[in-house]
Computed example of a mutant assay.
Amino acid sequence: MRLSGSRAGSVRLLLSLAALWLSDAKETGTAMTTGDINQQTQESISDYTTKRHDLSTPGSHLTAQDFNQQTNENLTIVLNNISIPGFSSAPVEKPVILADPATIELLCTLNSTSTDSAAINMTWKKDNETVRSGNVTSSKLKNVWSTQYTLNIRERNQMGNYTCIFKSEKEVKATFHVQAPQIDGKEHHVVSYVGDSVVLVCKSVKYTPINWIWYMSNGSDQIAVNDSLMPDKYKINKENNRTTKFKILKISEKDDRSYWCQAEFKLGESTGKVSLKVLTYMVPLKPFLAIAAEVIILVTIIFLYEMYSKKKQVLSDDQKEFEQIEQLKSEDSNGVENSTTRQRKV
Rank of each mutant, 00 (worst) to 15 (best):
D227I: 04
N81M: 09
N143K: 05
C202K: 08
N135D: 14
C108Q: 02
D318F: 03
T280F: 02
K329L: 10
K310H: 08
N128A: 14
V295H: 01
L267A: 08
T137Q: 07
Y215Q: 12
F176Q: 06
C261H: 00
N338W: 02
L55I: 10
V283H: 10
K266F: 09
N74Q: 11
T49C: 13
I77H: 06
A8P: 03
K203S: 12
L15K: 06
R154I: 09
S228Y: 09
S270M: 08
R52V: 15
T163A: 07
D255S: 09
A290D: 08
L298Y: 04
W21T: 11
S220I: 07
I37Q: 02
I251T: 00
S83Y: 01
E323M: 14
V295C: 13
S252R: 01
T30D: 10
P231N: 09
Q324C: 03
K311A: 12
S60R: 10
I251H: 03
T30R: 04
N135W: 13
L75Y: 15
D232G: 05
V172Q: 06
N72I: 08
G185N: 07
T57S: 09
E331Y: 03
V136I: 11
C108H: 01
C108L: 11
I97P: 01
P209K: 00
R342S: 12
L17K: 00
T71I: 10
N143P: 01
S146Y: 02
V96L: 13
A8Q: 08
T244H: 02
Y149A: 01
D24W: 03
L14Q: 06
I37P: 06
N111G: 06
A174R: 05
V205F: 03
K51V: 10
R7M: 10
S16R: 11
D256H: 11
Q40W: 05
D54L: 06
K203T: 15
P101C: 11
N240Q: 00
E169V: 06
D196N: 12
D256K: 08
S46G: 14
T280A: 02
V283G: 07
Q39S: 11
S192N: 14
V131G: 03
T150F: 08
E27P: 01
S88D: 14
D127C: 09
T103E: 15
M32C: 07
R52F: 01
E253C: 03
L55P: 01
E331N: 13
E306N: 09
L14I: 14
E269Q: 04
F246A: 10
A180R: 02
S56G: 13
T243S: 02
Q313V: 09
Y234C: 14
D232P: 06
S114D: 15
N80E: 15
L3H: 07
F67P: 00
F265W: 01
G86E: 12
S16L: 11
Q40A: 11
D24N: 10
V278W: 00
V295P: 00
V201S: 06
L110R: 02
D116Q: 09
S117D: 13
F87A: 11
I297Y: 01
K266I: 15
D100L: 13
V278L: 05
K273A: 09
S309N: 11
S252M: 08
L62T: 09
L276C: 08
P85N: 08
L151R: 04
F67H: 12
S204P: 00
V194P: 06
K329T: 04
I77L: 15
S133K: 07
S114F: 03
F166N: 02
